[in-house]
Structure formats: C-alpha cells, structure tokens
C-alpha cells in the first residue's frame, strides 16, 4: 500500500517536472539539467462555493516541499558533484526541513540509461549521498535521512533523448514521515 502510494507520488512528481522543464529543450546535452521547481498542481476549493480558489499545499507535506524548495537536484553525465543550482535547491530543502523537525526523508539517487546497470547503481548511491552530505553540512541531523539508489531502473522521463537523460540524472527527496 505504502509502496503503491510512493510510486504514484513519484510519477505525479515526474509529470510535474516534465511540465516545469518544458522550456529547457535544446540545451547543451552534457550540462546538468537546470534545477526546476517541481510545481504541484494547486488544490481546488472543495467547499462547493463555486469559486475555484487555489490554495497552497498543506504545510509540511510532500507537495509543500516541492513547492517551497523543489525535491530534485540534477547532475552532469557520470558526475555526482552538486551544481550551484543543486546546492541552492538543497539549501531551500534544509531551511524547510528545519521548520518541520519531525520530517524524515529518503534521498533516492538515479542515473540515465547510458551506462551499465551495475555502474549506475553505484552512481545513484553517490548522488544520493552527495545530496545527503550537503543537507547535513547545512545542519540537518543525518539520522533523519536515508539514502537508496535506483540506478537506471526508475527513470522519471522514459524517453531516450539527451533531455530525458539529463532529467534522469538526479537525487530525489521523498518524505518518509511528513510534517503534517
């Protein structure tokens, strides 16, 4: 049940990322993908007032993290060092995490399909840990963070294009315990 939910959440976020990044086509294939805010769709008013009033996501939720900080940082080909944009995203995540000390998170490292399975699993672990180390350096308690690698097995963008590969080289933050 939990897994299904997480998987779905991952997909929804992936779709959000696609929409947010549609404007970055045609950039240098080797450059890291520009870190975008993964914009969650605003929730609609369910009160039946007739007014379609968008409100922000629930504070402390996954959607809140995505809107406030972005939950994905991107890497160059075969790289696991953080870019300036990646550091900025993680700094926003760290600030958000300090507001919700009960939140626990999982950092998932991913790789593009242009490598072997076994190497990409190792590369994904490096990326997840690079993101974790940076959050820890900003004062986040390491016991709040676990890391795992999916290697090239769970691409957020299934296409075989340089643009998709750039999106798939990432470290993704998922909440294990939310601050809701």
């Amino acid at each position: 049940m939990m897994q299904t939910t997480l998987k779905r959440a991952g997909l929804a976020i992936a779709l959000g990322a696609l929409a947010a990044c549609a404007s970055t086509q045609g950039e240098d294939t080797d450059a890291p993908f520009e870190d975008g805010m993964d914009v969650a769709r605003p929730m609609s008013d369910e009160g039946g007032s007739g007014m379609n009033t968008p409100v922000g996501p629930e504070p402390g939720s996954m959607e809140d993290l995505i809107e406030s900080a972005g939950n994905r940082v991107y890497f160059g080909y075969n790289q696991y060092n953080l870019t300036n944009e990646g550091q900025a995203t993680l700094a926003r995540q760290a600030a958000w995490l300090k507001e919700y000390p009960e939140v626990r998170l999982r950092l998932i490292g991913n790789a593009d399909e242009r490598g072997t399975r076994e190497y990409n699993l190792a590369l994904g672990a490096r990326r997840a840990n690079a993101a974790k180390d940076y959050l820890v350096s900003l004062g986040i308690d390491p016991s709040r963070i676990t890391t795992i690698s999916y290697g090239k097995e769970r691409p957020v963008d299934p296409r075989s294009t340089p643009e998709a590969w750039a999106k798939n080289r990432n470290a993704t933050t998922m909440l294990v315990t939310t601050g809701v």
Partner: peptide, 10 residues
C-alpha cells in the same frame, strides 16, 4: 541476484 526495493537499499 540483486533485489531492488522501492524503499530500502538494494
């Protein structure tokens, strides 16, 4: 073989 899990390390 390698077992790849959704929410813990492989």
């Amino acid at each position: 073989y390698l077992a790849l899990f959704e929410n813990r390390p492989a």
